[in-house]
Structures are given as C-alpha cells and as structure tokens.
Amino acid sequence: MLHMVVCVKQVPDTTEVRIDPRTNTLVRAGVPAVINPYDAHAVEAAVQLKEKYGGRVTALSMGPPQAEEVLRRALAMGADEGILLTDRAFAGSDTLATSYILAQAIKRIDKMLPVNLVLCGKQAIDGDTAQVGPGIATRLGFTQLTYCMAIDAIDLEQGYIQVQRKLEGKREIVRGRLPALLTVVKEINELHYASLPALVRAARADIITWGKDDLELDPAQIGLKGSPTSVWRIFAPPARPGGEIIPGKPQEAAAALVEKLVKTKVVADR
C-alpha cells in the first residue's frame, strides 16, 4: 500500500513581516499564520496520488500548538490523519535539528504502517532554506528527489517512482527507487477549495500530538542545543535606491533610458 507522509509547516504571511528599524527585531504581531504554500501543493499531490493508486496520507507538522491549524487544512484537503510535534524542547531548532525530529517521527509512523513516500514543499517561505527535505531524506536513507514539477508514475511492485524535476531552464525526468522523499514546486498541481463536508470533518478530527518523550530523541540533537547554526543578527534589507525619473517626450526618454541601460551593461551583458 502507498503510505505517504506530507510535512507541512505553519508560516507567517511573509509579505507582512518587517524589521523594526529601531530595535532591529522582527515585527510579527498581527501577522496571520498560513500553511506554507508549497506544502499545500505537496498535500494536493499526495491526495491526487491516493485517488489514483489508493493508499493513505498522514500530515505531519512540527510547531507550537496553534500549528494544529495547518494539519486541519491538510485534512480538509483530503489527508487521513494529522500529527503535531510540539514541545518546548523543539524550539530554536535549525534545519539540522528540525530534520532530525521530523525523521524520528516518520520512523515512528513507519512502525505503525510502512511509509514509502514523504512529500515536502520546495522550501518554507519564512526560513527559505530548502534544507529540511534533503535532511530528512538523508537521515531516512530515502531516494531524494527535489523540485518535482510532475509525478509521472509510481510502481509499487517494481518499487519505483518517476518524476520530472525543475532545474535551471531544463526539466529532468528521473526514476527513483522507493521509498523516496520528494520536494515539490507550485507547478505540480492546482489547489482546489475544500468542500463543506470536508471542512467539517477536518474541524472535528482528532489531531495526534507527540512531544519529545513520545519519540526516540537524543536531547543533544534537538532545539537550540542541537542546532549548529545560529542567527547572530538580523537587519532590514538596504532600501532600493531608485526613483530616478527620466524626463522628456517618449522618444527622448526612451533613448536616454536605453543609453543608461546599455552603459550599465545590464542589457548588453547577455
């Protein structure tokens, strides 16, 4: 049977996160939390695979108790079960520690029902690292297939999956052995609105919660202590210079602008 685990992260709507210029701290107050958009595509991909091949979709998230919301969103989209990893000891985890905790949780899920496919988003829109997926794949020894824009076929008997990966100006068709971990880009599918019955079912569902004692974890590898990287300082990006208006009639202005662009080699550089 195809058993898929989809990793979903709750993220702030990043267009509204700003740096307070006086204190140089993140202003998150009042910023709405949403499902990481790439993770929504990962859930959709898993649900479509379930419709095609049968199977089961388990949604997994690590975060504070309110991250339960993104699991309900995944359930409304068609996931069968939601598991939330929440514990103060997980706070401050960088990607190495995060992938460790998620991988240990997937090992526990695998014991209940073997997992042959893990799906993640391409990256989270807050941390933006794209490192957690490869981290999980390495820890589990799964085939790592990043930036998937299409899933062509799965053959459980032969034990392989064929996908299309989005690379710079190219797409790569690759066949990988199962179990595998995929990270997905937006092009993989279109999102749909959930139906009312699905929403109600999701709202009523029980979310399973696991803390640090529910997993086999080395305390030295989780949270701040288990994180080799640390944010040393944060600051606002330099403001764009700009605002230079090129005066004159359309012809003159166009000529003057092209002159500038060609000089700065932005265009001629190709």
């Binding site: 992938s99 690292t129 490192q131 390495t138 690379l167 990287t229």
Partner: peptide, 23 residues
Amino acid sequence: ATSLGRDLSGAVATALGTGLTAD
C-alpha cells in the same frame, strides 16, 4: 545556491552533522 547545489548541500551537511546556511 542552484537547484543542484541546494539539493547536494542539504544531504552533505546532514551526513556530516554540521551547520549549513542557505542562499
């Protein structure tokens, strides 16, 4: 920080158990 570099670095840093800063 290409698709190849980001794919490979995440796997290598995890296997080495060291820190990796992205992009």
